[in-house]
Each structure stands twice: as C-alpha cells, then as structure tokens.
Amino acid sequence: MSIEVQNVSKSYGTQKALDNISFSIKKGEIVGFLGPNGAGKSTLMKILTTYINADEGSAAVNGFDVVADPKNVQLSVGYLPEHNPLYLDLYVREYLEFNAQVYKVAKSRIEEVIKLTGLTAESHKKIGALSKGYRQRVGLATALLHNPDVLILDEPTTGLDPNQLVEIRNVIKNVGKNKTVFLSTHIMQEVEAICDRVIIINNGKIVTDKQLEKLVSEIKEQIIEVEFDLTLDESLWASFAELTSYTNNKGTLWELNFATEVDMRPMVFDFAQQNNLKILQLNLKSKNLEEIFREQTKAK
C-alpha cells in the first residue's frame, strides 16, 4: 500500500481533530480527501508527512512508518501544503536548484519538472513576479523534484481563477498517471474531474470512503426541474406517491425530488395534462458530489 492509516487520533487541547480513523490507499490511486473547514484534513496530511505526530494509532507511507522511519517517508512524499511556502526573491530555476541540492538530485531533473509543470516560459522570472497559478506550479515542481512515489496536496487550487484552476488540475492529473495522489480540496468539480476515489471526513471521523463511480451510481434519487405556465396549488403534489419533497424556486418553477430511479418525466407530463397546465421547461437533474458532500457533513 502507498498510504496506510490505522486507528489514528489527534487532539489539540480539548478539540479532537482526528477520531480513530483508518484507511489505506493503493499505488496509483488518485484519492480526493474532502471535509468542511476544521474537519481534520490538514492535520492528517501533516501526520503523513511527519510534520506532527498522532496521539494514537499508526501511519505508513510507501511502507515506511511515519514515526519510526521519517527520513524515508520524506523521501517517498512530495508535499504541497495549503499555504505554499516559497522564497519570493529567488528566480524559479534558482529556487529549484536550491531544493535539488537539499534532495541531492541531479540538475537535469530541474528541467524535467519545469517542463512537466508548464513552467518553461516563466522559469527565468522571480517567483514574486509570478501569478498565484504559476506559484502553485513552482510548488508542484518542488514536490516532484525528487521523483516521489506519493504526492500529498493540501488545497492545491485555493484562490486560483477558473483558467488557472483548470491548468493546475491538468498538471495534477498528468503527474498522477504514474504516482499515488492524496488530494485535499473544497472544489467538488475538481474531485469529479481528477479522482478515482473519495474519502469524506467530518468532525474528525470518516463518513464516506468509496470509489467515485460507485458513490454516484448508488444514488437512488431523481431531481426534476419543471416550469408551468400557471401558478400551481402545491396541495396537488400529494398525488405523487414517489415524491419525497418539492420546492417552489420562483413563481411557476418547481424542483421535485423523487425516491426512485424510474424516469418520472412522463408522469410529470401526465400530471400537467390532468391539471390543464402547459410545461414551459422540464429538466432531469442528476444528484452530484456537492449534494452528497452536504448530506454527509451537515450538522446532526
């Protein structure tokens, strides 16, 4: 296994950041690690990268225990923390050369990671002159310098504009073809575009751990958005046995939730005809990862 976490707990004073969590990640997986602010995501990543120790339990990266063998863990991991630490007065190549010396890797590797992360055109500039998107690329290039087997990325696209987000996402997806990637993010579209598997943590506990495809396929709910030409008395919805809830979004626009996989649009057409209504628009909406996330992390 690339990452193994067994019964890990961590507290800060009276606040329990991680509460007896366990999971493992196989080599080559790209795993999205999701949770609301304060759920414990960064704490676990700091444990896996040997920055802090757990109070209880054990963790290993690439077969090396994070407490007993931290040096080999550090050599196995490329880590991009949430707040990307960079020397802004250094040039891109100068900064990478400094880190190459730390890792004792050949200078030829610098050119490889510059090309891999799309930094060629910016490599002659000072880091302080780069946009945030390119600074994130420098952070990724640094994490990749020693060619680690495992990438741990904590909120790698925070604060990026839509174009920068897509660019960094593509870089991560590209390097993830040959490495294990453990990725923390709040952007659900990012997970859907990149990840094979989703782990959701809430209040320090894992509430979901599934392959993304399986998670989406298990949804037994259907959402239909329909707009009629007239205002509707909501008591009429009582005729739908499978209707679990309905919302009047705006005037004659309704969102209907059905507890069934059967396509309910024909029944909505019949309903409109029976009540002398004309349908102006009818859309079948699929439940997405964002809605699953909200359900799994809402306050009990």
Rank of each mutant, 00 (worst) to 15 (best):
S9H: 08
E227L: 01
E155S: 00
V73W: 00
D19C: 10
S76R: 09
V67H: 11
V73E: 01
K126Y: 13
K300C: 05
N203T: 12
V113K: 06
M45N: 04
W237Y: 14
S42R: 08
T158L: 11
L212N: 06
I187N: 02
F293I: 08
D161R: 07
W237G: 09
Q74L: 13
D233Q: 14
E122G: 02
V138A: 07
H124P: 03
N249E: 15
L86M: 07
E112P: 02
F228S: 07
S76G: 07
L86C: 03
A54D: 11
T180C: 03
D209I: 04
A129M: 14
M1K: 05
I52C: 08
G35W: 09
I25D: 01
G204V: 05
I187A: 05
K278P: 02
A259S: 14
K278C: 07
Y95L: 13
I219A: 01
Q273C: 01
S42M: 00
P156G: 05
E221M: 05
V138M: 05
V61W: 07
E94L: 09
F182H: 12
T157D: 10
K300P: 14
A106L: 11
K41S: 04
N276R: 15
Y134C: 05
D263I: 04
F228W: 02
K26G: 06
L280T: 12
W237C: 10
N257I: 14
G128I: 12
A59M: 11
L151M: 15
V66S: 11
G133I: 04
L284H: 13
E242Q: 13
I199E: 06
I187Y: 04
E213R: 14
L277S: 10
K27F: 03
Q274E: 14
F228K: 11
V268A: 03
K300V: 04
Y79D: 09
P81N: 06
R265Y: 07
S286P: 03
E290H: 08
S235D: 08
L236M: 09
V73S: 00
P156I: 10
K46Q: 12
N202Q: 10
A39H: 11
S42A: 07
E290D: 11
M267K: 14
F258Y: 09
A241T: 14
T14F: 02
T157I: 12
A129W: 03
T208E: 15
A259C: 02
L34P: 14
H186L: 00
R294K: 15
E192G: 01
Q281S: 12
T231C: 00
I3A: 00
K298D: 06
E295G: 10
Y95A: 13
K210W: 05
E167C: 02
L151S: 10
Y12R: 14
L165P: 03
L289N: 07
E261R: 15
I224H: 04
I199L: 07
S2Y: 12
G204I: 03
Q281W: 00
N202S: 13
K287W: 03
F271P: 00
M267G: 00
A59S: 10
G28V: 13
N99H: 15
L34R: 04
N147P: 06
T117Q: 08
W237T: 13
F240G: 01
F182W: 13
A100V: 08
R109P: 01
P36D: 05
D161K: 05
T231H: 12
V113L: 08
K173A: 14
I21N: 09
N202T: 06
F240L: 06
K132F: 11
E167V: 04
Q189V: 06
R265N: 01
N20R: 01
S58A: 11
